[in-house]
Design a protein around this nucleic acid. Structure first.
Lengths: 228, 228
DNA sequence: GCGCACTGTTGACGAGTTGCCAGGAGTGAC
DNA sequence: GTCACTCCTGGCAACTCGTCAACAGTGCGC
């Protein structure tokens, strides 16, 4: 576009080139979706040939995984240096810091939660799962329930489910503008506390009833939901 | 595969052919992901040529949209004939019926929530949004808050956020097995009630404070979260 | 200063996919 | 029978990705 027509071949250190390509990929995958971004686009953005991108990352999918991996890191500072007060305040601080991070990295966060489940790609599932696990640890730390052993799996699963709400609520806030940051703060804080303090004990008491107790007296199963 | 080698050309009514193709597409899209299913696969499954599939639906994307549209319909029966009792029981019944539907259409539901945000495809967003709107109406109906006018948008947004939790919890139940159906019943029911009865009033009182009130006394904003 | 090995980088090929269109082939009307 | 209608197909063009032999910077020995 400018006068400076760059040399046909510009030889770089592998690390530098790799970072350059990764940056281009991050930008494009953040702006558009996986399917609409081609390796040619990324290569052009990075000023490189398609083949080199494949050479460095082994293919489109693996490059994408690399970008996702980089996007999903949950800053450890979110749950660092929490005061030894009650769970309420600790969670409130944690949530506030988290919203701060989300607000700053708005578009990155959106595309990260947007891809979520691009398919039944086991690799992506694993990455998202790892990220969720880390986030779950942060929350458990905040509510001071890291030492729960009885029903620990259920507790963690509940918090992962809560992070689903977190993502949806973030969309409402950042994309649709139907909720404010303050709304999210109140909603997420209260919901987490409600889950761990009220719902979780109810589940533990309920352990020997894996099926739901009959929700109503005259609730007979009426069938005609189309199976397909 | 069998002895019966079907006629090279079998002429059908457009509606019948359309339904046949749609069925094949539903099966394949339900089993695998969008990217890994090709029009050739669908055409073969339907015993038809690729071109005919495109002819009927205009292309892969539009066929996919059609399948999604069909998958996301929320059965109206979920919130039909609810007893005029308290909100708790009505929600409990509603949730139980919903879990029943999900359990029956397991794989379809999973792939439906799996695609969720396959990209920034505005069509898919619109479809998913419509489905969420309908689901929100069902919930509001169940908790008898259809006539709320003050903060109605916030209320609906909260319920949409809750449906994010619902989807994540469904994955925990159906895919990972970390939560039982009974767990979901308890969790979803209580969370909805908590949201509309406790959190929502708190948001309404909070309307003139769009930013979160300081979560703690000595909570000063400390900056160093990496921007990228 | 010159040539050589090392390796970053490229162009091109093959296999796969989708969208599109002219034309072949059922099917019912007369 | 044959004719029109339209369902349906084969094939072409364009695009995508993965792969590989070959080209060309870069630093080293001499």
């Amino acid at each position: 576009m400018g006068v400076q027509r760059q040399a046909r071949r510009r030889r770089m250190e592998p690390d530098a080139r790799r970072a350059e390509i990764l940056g281009a990929a991050r930008g494009l995958f953040g702006a558009r979706s996986y399917g609409t971004v081609s390796l040619a686009d990324i290569a052009a953005e990075a000023g490189v040939t398609r083949a080199l991108v494949s050479h460095y990352f082994g293919g489109k999918r693996q490059l994408y995984l690399e970008v996702v991996r980089q996007m999903m890191v949950v800053p450890a500072s979110v749950s660092a240096r929490l005061p030894p007060t009650g769970a309420e305040e600790r969670v409130a601080i944690c949530v506030d810091r988290w919203l701060e991070v989300v607000e700053r990295n708005r578009e990155m966060w959106l595309s990260a939660i947007g891809l979520e489940a691009l398919g039944d790609d086991p690799e992506i599932d694993r990455i998202m799962l790892e990220a969720d696990e880390i986030a779950t640890d942060r929350i458990l730390e905040a509510v001071m329930m890291t030492d729960v052993t009885d029903g620990r799996q259920k507790l963690r699963a509940m918090i992962r489910a809560h992070s689903g709400m977190l993502k949806a609520a973030s969309r409402e806030w950042l994309v649709r503008g139907t909720l404010s940051r303050g709304d999210l703060h109140v909603m997420l804080t209260r919901t987490v506390l409600h889950l761990v303090h009220t719902v979780f004990p109810a589940l533990r008491d309920d352990r020997e009833h894996p099926r739901a107790p009959a929700p109503g007296p005259a609730q007979e199963r009426e069938g005609p939901y189309p199976d397909s």
